[in-house]
């Protein structure tokens, strides 16, 4: 398990991270979401040791991190970086060796990843000759080549086409099932919601919500009812008890009960017209995020 406690980073008099804490256990996939510049990359860079935090600690199985420990982690930085003039397969294998594999093991892992990530046609191309999407795949292979014990991926899905997204999602699930904790950031919230077991929302350097998606949903959003009527007179929703959150179309409104019982709301709705739909609205992660950031 990786545990981040009270992580802070200050540049001059500017706080970039303030008291960020979370943990990711074996087999967990942690989605890190937040606006640009909120502190996701800073947190990940601190985990990977490429940035020294001002305060706080990061432990792996209860032990402080060392370079030897981090060598067993897989990292994809925010800004992609590969040697432009090195061939794809050669480069993946080289980083495999940098991360501690011997030559034959690095070659085997490279072959496997090249096939999985559909890079077979490009294995002997220089990286600079690849499309951005394929460079991204090569970068992922570099992060995965040494079968890391923890994966830290900064925006791994950005720039991938739908097949690339699927291939990566499958690989991440596979690693997760093998027990590898995965931490990744993304702005594609639907995708995050589909993949993750827990989520952290960071706003201006502070972690404002952490937990499973359900926990965060419950903690951060008020319950809402979705009501659909037919045959109702215009303005029907203003006559419902509770507070109207939004009107989706003339026959559908989202209502926050604000303490009113759902039975009272249902009865009021029945007086206005024929109730086609009445039920709790499950907010998406995107809804939660918008609410938290607002």
């Amino acid at each position: 398990m990786i545990r981040v406690s009270g992580l802070s980073k200050r540049y001059g008099d500017r706080d970039v991270l303030t008291d960020v804490s979370f943990e990711v256990a074996e087999g967990e996939m942690f989605g890190f979401i937040g606006a640009n510049g909120a502190g996701k990359s800073t947190t990940m860079r601190a985990i990977m040791g490429v940035l020294a935090p001002t305060a706080g600690s990061i432990t792996w199985h209860g032990q402080p991190l060392t370079r030897e420990t981090r060598r067993r982690f897989g990292y994809m930085p925010e800004e992609r970086g590969l040697y432009q003039k090195m061939k794809v397969a050669e480069q993946i294998a080289y980083f495999g060796q940098v991360y501690g594999l011997d030559h034959p093991a690095a070659a085997r892992a490279t072959d496997e990843l090249i096939e999985r990530l559909d890079l077979t046609r490009h294995r002997d191309d220089e990286v600079q000759a690849l499309s951005l999407g394929n460079q991204q795949r090569a970068q992922l292979a570099v992060a995965l080549v040494h079968s890391p014990e923890l994966l830290v991926l900064d925006e791994p899905f950005s720039g991938l086409d739908p097949t690339g997204v699927d291939a990566l999602a499958e690989i991440l699930r596979e690693r997760q099932q093998r027990g590898t904790p995965v931490i990744f950031s993304s702005h594609q919230l639907e995708l995050v919601e589909r993949l993750i077991s827990s989520v952290g929302i960071i706003v201006q350097g502070r972690m404002v919500a952490v937990g499973t998606v359900d926990e965060v949903r419950q903690a951060r959003t008020e319950p809402r009812l979705r009501v659909s009527l037919s045959g109702a007179r215009p303005g029907w929703h203003t006559r419902l008890p509770g507070r109207v959150h939004s009107v989706q179309d003339p026959g559908t409104a989202v209502v926050a009960p604000d303490g009113v019982s759902r039975v009272d709301i249902l009865q009021a709705a029945m007086r206005e017209g024929t109730v086609d739909h009445f039920g709790w609205l499950e907010p998406s992660l995107a809804d939660v995020f918008r609410e938290v950031v607002a």
């Binding site: 040791g49 800004e79 970086g81 432009q84 980083f95 992060a143």
Partner: peptide
């Protein structure tokens, strides 16, 4: 090259 492309970030995780 390594600094500009941020290759150092991946290298220095494992190498001093």
């Amino acid at each position: 090259e390594e600094k500009g492309s941020r290759i150092v970030e991946i290298l220095l995780v494992a190498v001093r």
